[in-house]
Write a protein that binds this DNA or RNA. Structure first.
Length: 312
DNA sequence: AACCAATGCAACCGCCTGAGG
DNA sequence: TCCTCAGGCGGTTGCATTGGT
């Protein structure tokens, strides 16, 4: 965003003692860039004093790191990056700077904004807490597979994924009967993230943690050295559910139209009537009350608009 | 065309941590 | 051990932009 057109929210040019606040001007950016190019990063308070900028050191640092630094990547987050954010957030929570370390060119601020504007928005739509296991499972069972779907589609991105077994049919895993289903520890990653996809990621390990589950193997333009391996997923909350309910939920997710597998398109209103409310569905499941289980989902699918429809 | 609400994002705030004296 | 300060981090705010009516 160009700051030159923005007006300063406070202070005036002739108020020389006052620190400037608000959007940065082109002149300020130029001053900062010139100073850093000659003296390097760091010692931000000194920089603020010596550069002629009437900004706090913190403000200078932030402007540099989030906007002016040459390797800052701009533009929309790729599906790969979104997937990585979701994955790493499930591992580390709101450790934005730590997450950002694994997305070259992306800043913690940008990732934080992405989370708040995109991910939390969905939680509001569902009227559930982003910290809830329900929401985490929606992400893993729906959003992340949709991103994988996008990644699989050619020419949607300059970056490519290498994921073994990713082309395996979506339903191959969850078609296991409850008896056949792997134990929760084994399901971790596959039972929650893809529930059907074995995402055996092979990533260089920065943290020397064992790479035990789905790890994303990024190639091409994304430097894999930045990607830490992802540790074990927590067991799916659905592991505790009545098997039939879990199975039914997975079926519902699977029948979603792959061509439009977008979190944004997930419309709980369009889910089969008895399961229109996710929370009640979950609670009913836990209480043993059947919900979708009584609903014949065969032949039902998500249409191109992400709306639930039945074939008859 | 005008208004309003929602959205996205840059920037700020306040707290925490670690280094140095 | 305590104090001070710079830098880092996560949370929050403010405003320009966008989309709908």
């Amino acid at each position: 965003m160009s700051t030159s057109s923005k007006s300063l929210s406070s202070s005036s040019e002739d108020d020389s003692d006052q620190l400037r606040r608000g959007p940065w001007t082109v002149e300020e950016d130029t001053l900062l860039i010139n100073y850093v190019s000659h003296h390097g990063e760091g010692r931000w308070n000194l920089l603020a004093k010596c550069s002629g900028l009437r900004r706090t050191g913190k403000s200078c640092r932030l402007r540099w790191l989030n906007y002016l630094k040459p390797d800052v990547k701009r533009g929309n987050l790729s599906p790969q990056e979104q997937l990585l954010i979701l994955e790493l957030h499930s591992k580390w929570g709101n450790r934005w700077s730590k997450i950002a370390q694994h997305l070259p060119g992306r800043t913690d601020n940008e990732i934080k904004n992405y989370w708040r504007t995109r991910v939390q928005k969905q939680a509001r739509v569902f009227k559930i807490d982003t910290d809830s296991t329900i929401f985490h499972d929606i992400i893993r069972s729906y959003w992340m597979p949709s991103l994988f779907q996008k990644i699989e589609e050619p020419s949607t991105s300059g970056m490519e994924f290498q994921h073994s077994e990713i082309s395996q049919p979506l339903d191959s895993a969850h078609r296991h009967s409850a008896a056949e289903a792997p134990a929760p520890a084994q399901v971790a990653g596959q039972g929650t993230l893809g529930f059907s996809q074995s995402l055996d990621l092979h990533v260089q390990n920065q943290d020397s943690e064992p790479c035990t589950s789905s790890c994303i193997s990024l190639s091409k333009s994304m430097d894999t050295s930045y990607i830490s391996q992802v540790s074990e997923y927590p067991a799916s909350p659905f592991d505790a559910m009545v098997n039939n309910e879990y199975e039914t939920f997975l079926r519902a997710c699977y029948y979603a139209d792959n061509s439009n597998f977008e979190m944004e398109n997930l419309n709980l209103e369009s889910i089969p009537p008895a399961a229109g409310n996710f929370e009640s569905f979950i609670s009913n499941s836990h209480s043993g009350e059947r919900n979708w289980g009584d609903h014949d989902l065969s032949g039902s699918l998500w249409n191109m608009d992400g709306l639930w429809q039945t074939s008859n």
